[in-house]
């Protein structure tokens, strides 16, 4: 009998689907600014989004016990099921992300794409921006879906009203970070411009996003302590070894450290930027890891039917 139903593939799916949504929003937001360095960020993030969502979806399929039947989900629409809604949202998002990425492929390379490569559509900036606007809204829904998927279940640790907002903010923070890191990686000549331009702007965004992220995580924990909620549900997460990972890893390194670094007035250097973005990415991953695994301990401990009582 398998003890943990959802393992690492689900954690990776939640992380990379969220990261794709965040990266897409970052690409759209950065595309509203003029300048080569912003252009490089948009391009990197727009190309990252479809790859990241594709990786997330393949992890989702890998987690199925009957992998070849994954397409059954494409024959059903169950409006009550967050997973069914998620399948359709992710499908829609994947299509939009691929189309949006084609707009950002350098023209020299794009023209070599068979059939569609020479369409005049790809040079229409207004079409690209309209697609980006619609795509951002779908990306927002995708980032929320990863939280709703967990919080609509009957697992006490996940059944929390703040989880969708928490996952949404985390997705945005990690997606923005991944987009900028990729831009730094692929534009070695423009690193200084990226740090003084897009990173300064990103710092301004993080000054709002990271406090909201921290607030969501505190509201998530505090909601368990209001009357009517089961506070014993959250104790395995915030005490013991899990608690160490949660407070030190997710809250400390994943949110507080980058938050204080972006709020500080010190001049941004490459190493400082990498620390901020790396901490956000690692924190976002560990957040999902510890939530998914700790939540399912409840099934092993209390599943009425499974508990073996000789």
């Amino acid at each position: 009998m398998s003890e943990i139903t959802w393992g690492m593939p689900v954690v990776l799916d939640l992380f990379f689907a969220g990261l794709a949504a965040g990266a897409f929003c970052f690409a759209v937001l950065a595309s509203r600014r003029a300048g080569e360095s912003f252009h490089a960020c948009s391009r990197a993030a727009a190309l990252l989004a479809p790859l990241s969502v594709a990786f997330g979806l393949s992890m989702l399929i890998l987690d199925l016990r009957s992998k070849t039947r994954f397409w059954f989900t494409m024959t059903v629409f169950n409006g009550d099921s967050p997973m069914s809604l998620g399948v359709w949202l992710l499908t829609l998002f994947s299509v939009i992300a691929v189309l949006y990425a084609i707009f950002w492929i350098p023209a020299v390379v794009r023209e070599r794409l068979p059939v569609i490569g020479r369409w005049p559509l790809w040079s229409q900036q207004r079409v690209r921006d309209a697609l980006g606007l619609v795509g951002s809204l779908v990306a927002l829904l995708v980032s929320i879906y990863t939280g709703v998927l967990l919080s609509a279940t009957s697992i006490p640790l996940w059944r929390n009203l703040a989880l969708p907002a928490l996952f949404c903010f985390s997705s945005m923070a990690t997606g923005f970070a991944a987009g900028l890191l990729l831009a730094l990686l692929f534009s070695p000549g423009k690193r200084q411009e990226i740090i003084t331009g897009p990173f300064r702007w990103l710092q301004g965004s993080y000054r709002v996003l990271l406090p909201a992220y921290l607030l969501a995580i505190l509201v998530y924990v505090l909601l368990f302590f209001i009357p009517g909620m089961r506070q014993e549900a959250v104790l395995p997460l915030i005490t013991g070894w899990n608690g160490l990972v949660w407070w030190l890893g997710v809250v400390g390194v994943g949110i507080m450290l980058p938050m204080f670094l972006v709020l500080g007035r010190a001049k941004a250097s490459l190493s400082r930027v990498i620390v901020i973005l790396g901490a956000l990415l690692a924190g976002g991953f560990v957040l999902r890891l510890v939530l998914v695994f700790t939540g399912q301990e409840h099934i092993i401990a209390t599943a009425y039917h499974l508990t073996y009582m000789p």
Binding site: A30, R32, D80, L140, A165, V208
Partner: peptide, 27 residues
Amino acid sequence: VKGQQVWKWIGGLVPGAFVLAWLWKNA
């Protein structure tokens, strides 16, 4: 799943849209 899902969507959408709109305006 059925009974509380709507509130979970609203609980994510309201703060999420608010922050995204702020970022949009900021840009």
